[in-house]
């Protein structure tokens, strides 16, 4: 059951992200990129297995039937930190675009 719910959520998140990236409003584009990178993070967590069992370390990256792989969670933490930095930069850049162009409508932003 969890699998279907998560698959549906991931699909929705990617669809939403793609929709926002294709908008004219720059801030929405940045939101879209953020949602997509977060969706990638959620996807990464699901790659460790969804059993919810307590992880133990016996074999590297093994697919134990009842345990959840903890490594992907460490990967996601790294990816979240990187995503935080890039989102901050993208928002800062959006403000600069507004300063230099006087608009955040992407049809009018053509340097």
């Amino acid at each position: 059951m969890t699998q279907f719910v998560l698959a549906a959520v991931l699909g929705t998140l990617f669809a939403l992200g793609t929709f926002l990236v294709l908008r004219r409003d720059l801030v929405r584009v940045v939101w879209g990129l953020t949602i997509m990178s977060q969706a990638a993070n959620v996807y990464l967590v699901t790659m460790g297995g969804l059993s919810g069992g307590v992880p133990f370390i016996s074999g590297h990256g093994g697919h134990g039937a009842e345990t959840t792989d903890p490594l992907v969670q460490a990967l996601v933490l790294t990816a979240i930190v990187i995503g935080f930095g890039t989102t901050a930069f993208a928002l800062g850049l959006s403000y600069r675009v507004y300063q230099t162009n006087g608009t955040i409508d992407l049809r009018e932003v053509r340097g």
Partner: peptide
């Protein structure tokens, strides 16, 4: 800013795909 916008947006997409 226009060039950086394209460059950043494409590479953020690229990073998500790489993940």
């Amino acid at each position: 800013t226009d060039a950086a916008l394209k460059y950043t947006a494409l590479n953020l997409m690229g990073s998500a795909v790489m993940l």
